[in-house]
Every structure is written in C-alpha cells, then in structure tokens.
Design a protein around this nucleic acid. Structure first.
Lengths: 200, 200
DNA sequence: CCTGCCTTTGACCAGTTGGTCAAATTATTG
DNA sequence: CAATAATTTGACCAACTGGTCAAAGGCAGG
C-alpha cells in the first residue's frame, strides 16, 4: 500500500519530468546528463536521484507517459464516420500534437532514430496491432469505393510523416519560412493532400 | 602544397568516416564516443586522432560531405520540365536516398532535431535561398494553371517528410510492415499523393 | 641494410559522468 | 514543542570521456 504523494513530491517529480523532457528530447538519452536535467529542474543531482532511481528511470517514465498519448489519437478514429473526415481529423489531431507538444514528438523521434531500444516491443506489439486494425477499416472503405485505392499502411505512415515533421524538423522549417508561422499553412496543405489522395 | 594522401591514409580516413557515420547517425554527436567510432573503424583511439584532430572534426567532416549531396537533388529540378513529372522525380530522388543512404538521413535528422547547432547558418542561408528559388518556379506553375494551387513551401516540406520518414523511422516502419519491404509500396503511394495534390 | 618518414600504440591526464551516503536541514504530526 | 519522517546537500567514488605524448614499429627510397 503506497502512500499518496505529498505536495512537494508531486511538485518535484513534475519538475524533473518536465526538465527531463526538455533535455532528453534535445540530446537523446545518451547525449543527456543528469546535471543538465538537475539544473533545468532547479534541483541538485543527488536530489534528483532521491525521486528517481536513475537516469534511466526518468527517461523510461517519460517514454511510458508519452506512449499513452501517442497511440490515443489513432484509437479515436471512428470506423462508422465519413472516411475522409475521419482520416483528416486524425491527421489534424497529430498536427495539433506537433504544435503543442513538440518536445514529446522529438523525444519519440530520438528514440526511434536510435533504433527504439526501449520501445521496440511496443512497436512490434501494441502499435502494430492497432495499425493492423485501422488498416482493416481503411481497406473496407476502399472496397466500398468510399475512398480511392490506397495502401492503408503507407497512408498512415504519410500522416505520421507529414505531421511530425513540423515538430521534429521545426528548426529547419522555421529557417525557411522566416517569420511565417508553419502551422498556419500546414493544416490547409494537409487537408489538400489527403483530399486529393482519398476523394474518389 | 599538400602532399596527396597515401593509400593507407585514404583507407583509414574512409574507415573512420564510415564508422563515424554509423555511430553518429545512431546516437547523435553528444551521445557518441570516440571509442565507439574507433572500435567500429577497427583502429585504436589515438590512431583515430592521428587522422582527425578531434571528435568534432570527424563529425563536421561528415556533415559537410552530407550537405553537398543533400541539396543536390533539389538543384536538379528543371523549371522547363513538366511540373508534376519534375516534382515527382525530385521526390523519387529523395526516396532513393532514404533507401540507399539511411545513415546519412539519420545523421541529418539527429542534427536538426538537436537544434542544428552546427548547420544553422546553412539552413538560414544556402538552403533557404535554394528553396525560395524553387518556390518561385512552383508559384509560376500555379499561376499558369499547370498544377493546382498549392503552397510551394509546404509542398517541399511534405516531400521531405514523406521520403525521409522511411529512413529516419525505419525501425517503426519495419515493425509495422513485418516482412514487407517498405520501399515497394512507398514509391507508388508517393506518386498517388503528389498526383492527387497537384494534377489540376 | 640504413636512413628518414609515416603510422601505431600504451601509458597517461584532467574533466565529466552516473550514482552513493551519511549528515544536515526542513516539514509534519502527535 | 518534541519527535518522527521527509527532504536536501556536500563530499565522495569508480568508470568513462576526449585528448596528449613519447616511444616503438613499419615501410619507403637510396
């Protein structure tokens, strides 16, 4: 029977996770140091380790929290809804996440680029099953002639790619756009791409 | 007057750069160690540093070489050609690079995600200018009614996103596709997306 | 074989890393 | 307010980090 967290525990754990998100999302696990995280959190290093067993514990805690939110938008896709609307709504949800949670997106990107050593099983398990389910739905839409003939897997990949790009490659995007806000034009472009691809 | 590299120099420099590419593309600059690179290259650490001044020198040497090849496909786009063909050909070139040079793609992705500390000036300079030029061309095509009304910048972003995704998120893509080769379906899907978006 | 240069290495160094620990400080509670 | 529990810290450690250096080994041309 675990005692509930005290006010101070909640505050510090949140500060550590927030700092860890910032640091790990920028440098990856191996490129980040506990001192960086501690500084960012406004705590001493030993104090960090009072709340988390190890550097690894902070990181995996972040990853676990992230994966929940990461798969959720896909689960919300409604097989009963209008195909194009549903797929665009899903893309829009992902785009919003890139806009409002870019650090989470980059943390995920770092983990994947580095070979997903800690979440490989999730990719091969939960994620794959979920995508397989959605692929069945999309294939159904194709068979019914409600959308053009597309490969459901590559369709999903393209939605991921198009939306996450704005978070992960934020620096590059802004370097090219200058003062223009990337997310102003992104949604309209995304809508045009999906409608052009899907509308029969 | 620099003496030309000896056979042994060429061999070892190539081995170091190859090893560096592998290691840095996986762990990023800060997450990689000289020992890792040395092991991978089959050399001792002091021997590495006989050929390259520092860890940084290996990394920047890789980045410089990469940037050349990175911008080239965009330069090859022919303003006189058929708009849809030209844009798809460009996308195809990028997709081929993802297939055949995934480590280069991941090295670049790592650098960008981490805020592009070493190539920020290239992004704001050379890259931005080049993209601006192409944007003028694309806007011309739009004005002539040869392609649908699209934002040239987001069009280019989407080509980058769609193609690089297959290299950078390779692990995730393969986890979902299983035995299927990602690049089999990718080209067809990319073609469908661009034609759906661009064909008037 | 010998001379001079290129290459390789083992030993080493100072700074950083993740992590420990006992002691000190600060809440909380009876 | 006293006692107990929770929190914070400074000192410390062993392993690892990027990098140096003098000495040794190898290899060419004469």
């Amino acid at each position: 029977m675990n005692k509930p967290d005290t006010r101070i525990q909640k505050k510090n754990q949140a500060a550590i996770l927030d700092a860890g998100l910032l640091v790990f999302s920028q440098f990856g696990f191996r490129g980040s140091t506990l001192d960086q995280v501690a500084d960012e959190a406004g705590l001493s290093k030993p104090n960090l380790l009072y709340y988390f067993r190890s550097k690894e514990a902070i990181y995996t805690s972040l990853l676990a929290k992230l994966l929940e939110n990461w798969l959720e938008p896909l689960r919300e896709l409604d097989p009963q809804g209008d195909p194009v609307d549903e797929l665009f709504a899903y893309a829009k949800r992902k785009l919003d996440m890139s806009q409002h949670f870019p650090r989470e997106s980059r943390l995920f990107a770092n983990e994947i680029i580095q070979g997903a050593p800690r979440i490989g099983d999730v990719l091969h398990g939960e994620l794959r099953e979920l995508v397989d389910e959605i692929a069945v739905v999309i294939n159904g839409w194709v068979a019914d002639g409600r959308i053009k003939d597309v490969d459901p897997y590559h369709l999903i990949f393209s939605i991921w790619a198009l939306t996450q790009h704005y978070a992960d490659f934020d620096v590059q995007v802004r370097a090219i756009l200058g003062e223009v806000d990337p997310f102003d034009g992104a949604e309209k472009h995304l809508d045009a791409m999906l409608r052009g691809l899907l509308t029969p």
